[in-house]
Amino acid sequence: MNSLILRTTTGFLLSLLVLFSVYLMLRGHNAPGGGFIGGLTATAALTLYAFAFDVATVRKMLRLDPLSVAGLGLVLALVSGLPGMLGGDAFLTSRWALLALPDGTEIHLGTPLLFDFGVYLVVIGVGCAVLLTMAEERGE
């Protein structure tokens, strides 16, 4: 798959798709979306990129090993459970803070967002680990 058109468009698409996946992840609490869906979208984007260029490029771009990404996600998800526990509640009890922006809008920030971000990273890590490794296998 050495198509110039594919390469060029994928270059644009990748950043768009990853941005979109983050958007999906963030809005998940109020509209369809969330860590799972966002993570899957990002994985699809990265896989597409791997097909257009090659696996090594994607790996370089990720900087971390996919499994480390997944591990990081797990750690984040775990950490998100700690504030609740420190506050004397059960592990993973949610904690929220209201962030008021200068222009008057209010944003709810809470541990569940961190948790969802963890899920997002795990899904990306797992998806990339499986697909990229398999794609390398094919190249051999």
């Binding site: 109020n30 979306g33 809470g110």
Partner: peptide
């Protein structure tokens, strides 16, 4: 604090 019930559950 979420309107997407499925996601809040998760």
């Amino acid at each position: 604090h979420g309107r997407n019930v499925v996601n809040v559950i998760l």
